[in-house]
């Protein structure tokens, strides 16, 4: 299992967290998503190395902005 941490801007509440989680769970290989709204942080667990472009696209699709990949 691989755990990656991303900085995502624009999240404000639980509904934001749900939208980001829903899109990230569609990315192939993702097994779990944990969102920390106040910290602008999203933790993604996957069974393979994730393509940053795919992760970014998922976050963008939800309407948010991925600004950093911290792992």
């Amino acid at each position: 299992m691989i755990n990656s941490i991303y900085t995502v801007l624009g999240m404000a509440c639980g509904h934001c967290a749900d939208a980001v989680t829903e899109e990230l769970e569609r990315v192939p290989g993702v097994t779990a998503v944990e969102v920390h709204v106040e910290a602008d942080r999203v933790s993604v667990t996957s069974d393979r190395e994730l393509d940053l472009a795919q992760v970014r696209a998922a976050v963008e699709e939800a309407g948010y902005e991925l600004t950093a990949h911290n792992t």
Partner: peptide, 16 residues
């Protein structure tokens, strides 16, 4: 719901 937003976070939330 316990999530604190200041001016910067409020502005960032306009994007979504």
């Amino acid at each position: 719901d316990g999530h604190r937003m200041d001016r910067d976070k409020l502005i960032a939330h306009t994007r979504p």
